[in-house]
C-alpha cells in the first residue's frame, strides 16, 4: 500500500475539469485508489464523491493506493499533480 499527499493549489479548490481528469486517470489501474480523510475513505473512481468532499484551495488531498500496479499508479499520480496547473 502506498500513501500520498498532495496540496490543492488552485485558490478556488478543485474544479470539475481537473477532477474529471483525475477520476479518469485513477480508473486506468487495477489498484484500489481512494481518498481518505480521518476514518472516511472514498474510492477515487467517482467524480460525484470527489466533488462532494468539498475540497478547497490549500486543502491536503490524502490518497491511498493498494494493488498490483500501485507503484505505476503512484508515479502516474505524481506526474498528474506536477503537471496540472489549475488543481
Amino acid at each position: 500500500m502506498i500513501e500520498k499527499e498532495y496540496i490543492i493549489t488552485a485558490p478556488e479548490g478543485m474544479h470539475a475539469r481537473p477532477a474529471t481528469a483525475l477520476v479518469r486517470l485513477a480508473k486506468n489501474f487495477t489498484s484500489v485508489i481512494s481518498i481518505w480523510e480521518g476514518n472516511k475513505t472514498v474510492p477515487l473512481n467517482s467524480l460525484l464523491n470527489l466533488l462532494s468532499m468539498g475540497i478547497k484551495g490549500g486543502d491536503v488531498l490524502k490518497i491511498r493506493i493498494e494493488g498490483e500496479d500501485e507503484i505505476t499508479a503512484a508515479e502516474a499520480l505524481d506526474h498528474f499533480f506536477s503537471q496540472i496547473k489549475d488543481l
Partner: peptide, 19 residues
Amino acid sequence: SGAADILEAHIEMLTDPQL
C-alpha cells in the same frame, strides 16, 4: 470556452459508479 469540459464532466457523472 470550457463547454466541452463541462460536457465531459457530465459523461463522468452519468457513468459514476456511486450514482
